[in-house]
Amino acid sequence: MTAAKEKSALLVKDHDVVVPGEVLAQGMEYLPSQGTYRKDENIYANQTGLLIVEGKVLKTIPLASAYLPKKYDVIIGRVQDILMTGWRIDTNSPYSAVLPLKDATFDYIKKGADLTAFFNIDEYVVCKIFQVTSQNLVDVSMKGPGLRKLQGGRIIKVNAAKVPRLIGKRGSMVMMIKSATGIQLIVGQNGIVWLNGDPEQEVLAIEAIRKIEEEAHVPGLTERMKKWLEKKTGKKIEIQEMPEEESYDHRPPRRDGPRRDGPRRDGPRRDSYRGPRRDGPSGPRRDGPRRGPPRR
């Protein structure tokens, strides 16, 4: 045991860019986490990313990835098609989502009503994912604060892996771009960004977003962006956190127990009601003809 401990060694530094197949650490002392795996005595990277060393745990933050739907994510989706009882939403991922009628609006919708009056094809909506199955079938909802149809403005796409950097700590990066340019800005977790405001300021904001995308992995991003925006706009900018009600953290408060990770969340539901328990004191059911009602 002690011999193995002595041999343990970290071969890369914290915040290094690592690539698949690269040996990160030798020996049993380090533990693999997201984006890394153990084979025999070594820990290897699984995905191109930024290595994060948390004590003895090694994980990577991906530098590029496609968006995969995740429960509670607030995304910007495009109305793709109109269904019998809802809308099909393009989520900028391999999986389209369904927006059911009952989760779309508080209005009363008559049977056979024209659904295009609410959301028409090619319109964009801010919506929240409330259900993802193991096969990545997705349901979204429009009931919630800040969830609405988008009118006007423009849409750009960014790599989904860069969205956390673009939002910043508690929305600080988004707030900074907003206050510097004075435009409206919504960042969907799926990498779709909506901007609306003065066209010149929109262009400036897009330039800023592209810069963030390119430099996301270089430390000191917020400070650098602050300086860059101050230089471009000539305004003094203060780094501030996003107010609670428009925060990007839409997850319900954490309950006790281990946090689950990864795209699959809900296992088979246990709370579905299946009628009264049959294994009560009456014993197992017997074969043979069913007994009729008691005679009077």
Binding site: P20, Y37, Q47, T48, P62, L63, A66
Partner: peptide, 11 residues
């Protein structure tokens, strides 16, 4: 594929 961020145990 590694550049696209696809999970792979080696190149």
């Amino acid at each position: 594929m590694a550049d696209a961020g696809i999970k792979m145990r080696d190149m």
